[in-house]
Design a binder for these strands. Sequence first.
DNA 1: GCTAACTTGGAACGACCATTCCAAGATGGC
DNA 2: GCCATCTTGGAATGGTCGTTCCAAGTTAGC
Lengths: 201, 201
Amino acid sequence: MPDVKHFDPEAVLDSAEELFWRRGVTSTGVRDIVSATGVNRSSLYATFGGKRELYVAALRRYADRRSGPVFRRLAEDDRGLPAIADFFRALIRARCSGEHARWGCLVTNAHAGPEQDDPDIRSVLQDHHDRLRAAMCAALERARATGGLRPDIVPATSADVLALLAYGVNLRSRAGASPEALDETVTAVLASLATRPEEIR
Amino acid sequence: MPDVKHFDPEAVLDSAEELFWRRGVTSTGVRDIVSATGVNRSSLYATFGGKRELYVAALRRYADRRSGPVFRRLAEDDRGLPAIADFFRALIRARCSGEHARWGCLVTNAHAGPEQDDPDIRSVLQDHHDRLRAAMCAALERARATGGLRPDIVPATSADVLALLAYGVNLRSRAGASPEALDETVTAVLASLATRPEEIR
DNA sequence: GCTAACTTGGAACGACCATTCCAAGATGGC
DNA sequence: GCCATCTTGGAATGGTCGTTCCAAGTTAGC
């Protein structure tokens, strides 16, 4: 039997995800991942393939382990509009303060860079977008079921609006947009959906 | 008296803007600008300083000559909401088809990359954002003046919403979002602002 | 036509990049 | 203890990056 890995690939992906997220794909070199993890170049290449594969894996990991649970929680929340309001409040808080302040969203950032030409990456972006829309749509349909949605609102269409709004928040938070202003902006959109705007927060 | 420049700096900036826009800052090398313009390295450095300065100048140029006129037209348009609808229609058309299809917006792209750490670049982004918001706000106030805006709408706040929406359009268009879907999304937002939603297009 | 001032061409520099290669080391079954 | 098999360390490769430097060329006034 052969030798066994002397490191944890999952931990390496965690580090890679953080580096790609914080500093971007092009600004993050393999040497940065080497020095952040302590794992040797050769082991990295033997395990993952190369920088591209490392990035794709980190991006998938981000979509699965960061966005995924949040989207799921949103989709399964019975409250409708308040669930969406909570989603955005948490989003804005995460983007503007704490450990990841001003990092934006790894998937949103990927949209704007040259990495999005890659078919594998493109499919992650599309998948992420579809999941976000679906979660928003589910929450809106719950709002409709409880009469919280204005009659002229079409959940699927407004889900697209809210998804684009989330991208806007992710993007502008990187430039230092104030959380209060973002909150107010989001609240205005939610108010336009609600039967009783005063109940959304 | 000294020798005089053998090339047009403005034309160089045009080329640089196009390259940075299409392929991104990090993927565009000085050599690319050299071969696109035919201007020698030394002349580039003597005239502009370096890559960073070239990028900042190209970004400023984009904001002034691409976004500027569009924002001005929007702000000066008397029609209110139809002016905003036209703005978005033209935006979506430009982002999804024609010469610049899938390039997104140079300023929007700058938000997501590592270039936004630079104070000079950051100030261009902020300025661009403020101008966009102001133009939207002006158009909304005209809508209000003609009774086209729902009474509960606050122009300044909805201007922020529309600005974030524009960033979302810019971003998603790069990933290949369909112009029809984007149109529908934008129309839904405008309908939520209008006293008579059926009149916005 | 001379000269001072500036531009231009092209080579050269040093740093960094992703990737490869190979010898040395470690492992688990026999 | 041996060996096949994989991992690991570290040097090396070939390329590209932004930038610099200097000699040669070009210009406009005198």
